[in-house]
C-alpha cells in the first residue's frame, strides 16, 4: 500500500517548471484560445472569400515584426531563469527588463496597427473577419499586458533579493506564463494574418 500524498504537487515533482497553479491557469487560458481558434477556423471555411479578401488588408510586416519581438523577449526570459539559477540576480533583472522591453515594443506596434484600422472606420461590427481579428488580437493584447505586469512584479521582487539559485520558483512561474503568451501569438499570427 503506497503512502498517501498530502499535496498535489508531490505527485509530479520535477515535470513542470514553476508552480502547479500557474499550469492549471495556463491550461485554462489555452483552452479559451483553443476554442476561439477552432471557431475561427470553422467560420473561415464557411466564409472563405470574405476572409481571404479582408485578410489582405492586415499589415503582415508589423505582425512579423511583433512575432520577432515576442520570440526575442521569450528568449530573454529563458536567460533570466538561467541567470537566477546561477545565482546571478543582477543579470536576471537585466534579462527581465529586456523581456519587458520586447513586450512594450509589441504593445506599441500593435497600438499603431489598431489606430490605423480604427481611423479607417473599422470596428467589431464591420464584418465577421474584422470581428474575429479585433477580438482575438485584443484578447491577446490584454494577455501581453498581464504577462508584463507579472514579469515586472518578479523583477521588483528579484531586486529585493527574493530569489536565489535555491529558490527561483517565482521566476520560473512568471516565465512559464510569458511563454504561453508568446505561444498563443505564434499560433494566432499565421492563423489570422497569413494562412489562405
Amino acid at each position: 500500500m503506497p503512502t498517501p500524498i498530502t499535496n498535489i504537487e508531490a505527485i509530479e515533482p520535477k515535470l513542470l517548471p514553476g508552480d502547479l497553479a500557474i499550469w492549471l491557469f495556463i491550461f485554462m487560458e489555452l483552452l479559451v484560445f483553443g476554442i476561439f481558434f477552432i471557431i475561427y477556423a470553422v467560420v473561415r471555411i464557411q466564409n472563405i472569400e470574405l476572409f481571404n479578401h479582408y485578410q489582405l488588408t492586415l499589415n503582415r510586416e508589423l505582425g512579423a515584426a511583433n512575432t520577432l519581438l515576442l520570440i526575442t523577449s521569450s528568449y530573454f526570459v529563458v536567460r533570466a531563469v538561467h541567470a537566477i539559477k546561477a545565482d546571478n540576480i543582477k543579470n536576471c533583472i537585466y534579462w527581465l527588463y529586456g523581456a519587458l522591453a520586447g513586450g512594450a515594443g509589441f504593445l506599441i506596434l500593435k497600438s499603431w496597427e489598431y489606430v490605423d484600422k480604427f481611423s479607417a472606420g473599422i470596428n467589431l461590427s464591420t464584418n465577421t473577419f474584422y470581428m474575429f481579428y479585433l477580438s482575438l488580437t485584443m484578447f491577446h493584447f490584454l494577455h501581453v499586458i498581464l504577462g508584463m505586469v507579472i514579469l515586472f512584479a518578479i523583477a521588483i521582487k528579484a531586486k529585493r533579493g527574493a530569489y536565489s539559485a535555491q529558490n527561483h520558483l517565482g521566476v520560473e512561474t512568471g516565465a512559464s506564463y510569458w511563454h504561453m503568451v508568446d505561444l498563443v501569438w505564434i499560433i494566432l499570427f499565421p492563423l489570422v494574418y497569413i494562412i489562405r
Binding site: 476554442i35 471557431i39 467589431l124 461590427s125 477580438s135
Partner: peptide, 14 residues
C-alpha cells in the same frame, strides 16, 4: 451588435 453572439457563447461556455 451581433458579435456578442460569438463572444458571449465562447466565454460563457467556460
Amino acid at each position: 451588435p451581433a458579435y456578442w453572439q460569438w463572444l458571449g457563447s465562447v466565454f460563457s461556455a467556460l
